[in-house]
Design a protein around this nucleic acid. Structure first.
Lengths: 124, 124
DNA sequence: CTACAAGTTCAAGTGAACTTTAAGTCAAGA
DNA sequence: TCTTGACTTAAAGTTCACTTGAACTTGTAG
């Protein structure tokens, strides 16, 4: 598989794949006349990256996670620590989002004659 | 009130206030020898901006909202439309965050002997 | 008068995660 | 042979919401 094929299957742009490689998220694949040649496992790797992103990890964080994995060890203490912190961050993000929804509901449902009334109402 | 005082009370940097003004989120206050002089209403304005930010609106979006308000009309159809879309976005964000938490829980709780087992397990 | 804090403008910098562009290489098809 | 399309690199550009820096003015205190 060349990079274009991988990109199509993974739903990414080729530039993203090269970027991930440059950031150490992906192994450097063998080349045929300069071009990257991938096997199927790259898709698993990209799936993991996708999940990690979906879990709210930054590219830099994912790099660390991947490094842990690539030593063929299961998720260890490092993973757990990162995951725990991230989980708390997610709780906070969820709480914020729910608060945002409340604010929005007030705006859409209420009827305030003036600007100030609205601001006033939102404070509670 | 000079800009420094406003910043302190609102918990912002002066640069943020100038930035908001430049972006049309704040009215241009009168000047005394070149310096911006604010009255108390600026704090309400900043509180509204804060709430709008907390509701997930971008600066550009807040600008539109403010414009709606500044015509002394209550939140109208424009607000409602924006708010509805934003509310849906928040639902999606919350769902994503909850999914992230699930993924994290799997990583921290499960024991996978290999990298691939973990990726496999995460797919479900 | 001098120093100093706080204000002013405008332009450029920041960080994250990519994308885009420029310039070039390579293999295959007409 | 020429063209086409996919690939290569390195560097610069993008977006967002500000922040920072440089150079300057203003009001107040000593």
């Amino acid at each position: 598989m060349l990079i274009g094929e991988v990109a199509k299957r993974a739903g990414l742009k080729t530039s993203a794949i090269r970027y991930y490689e440059s950031e150490g998220l992906l192994p450097k694949p063998p080349r045929q006349s300069g071009q990257r040649v991938y096997d199927g496992s790259i898709l698993d790797r990209l799936a993991l990256i996708d999940l990690a992103k979906a879990a709210g990890f930054s590219v830099a964080e994912i790099k660390h996670l991947i490094q842990g994995f690539s030593r063929r060890t299961p998720p260890g203490a490092r993973w757990r620590a990162l995951a725990k912190r991230k989980s708390q961050e997610l709780d906070e993000a969820i709480a914020r989002a729910q608060h945002m929804k409340q604010v929005l509901a007030m705006v859409t449902q209420g009827e305030w004659p003036t600007f100030d009334d609205c601001v006033e109402a939102m404070r509670n």
